[in-house]
Amino acid sequence: MAVPSRQVSTLIVLGSGGHTAEMLTLAAHLDKQHYSPRCYVVAATDRMGEAKANAAEACGRGVAEGQACVCKIPRSREVGQSYVSSVWTTLVALCAAFSVVFSQRPELVLVNGPGTCVPICLAALVYRLVLWRRCLLVYVESIARVDTLSLSGKILYRIADCTFVQWPQLQRKYPRTLCVGRLY
């Protein structure tokens, strides 16, 4: 009898622009049999992110078959927004992040910044503390970071189960990171 293959519910957080491109390059190499279902998390204002996630799932085929979905969460702060009003929008973003994590119940959360990925990471930490579930948090620092970790990299370095960097000189500065090569 065939052993049922192990399925890992996966949250793939698309950070916009160059972050999205790097994350989808990584996601393209995941074995879709194992990493299923997949939920792509995009900012509500990031139209390109949703389109690119659908394209990555072969024109929505994975989406149609229920193995993949796209969840939108509001950004905690848009460029140029005042700090006072961003208190409120951060709370809204956090609530949305909790709702995504607690409904998708991921076993793996893949993030690569920017700061907009932090609410999802916080929600994932709370989720595994409260529900005592296995939930791995994996951060992949951008290929653009050669000598210094980004702000989200510095935050995630402390809380992620694994932080990948793409340049050996950066790994030497942060010994608990892993460097096994570049995405491009």
Binding site: V8, H29, D31, E107, V138, F164, L178, V180
Partner: peptide
């Protein structure tokens, strides 16, 4: 020399236990 995403994915496979 082009990078290879498969190397990072392999490491994630190992972490997850696939």
């Amino acid at each position: 020399p082009k990078g290879d995403p498969a190397a990072i994915v392999q490491e994630i496979d190992r972490l997850v236990g696939i």
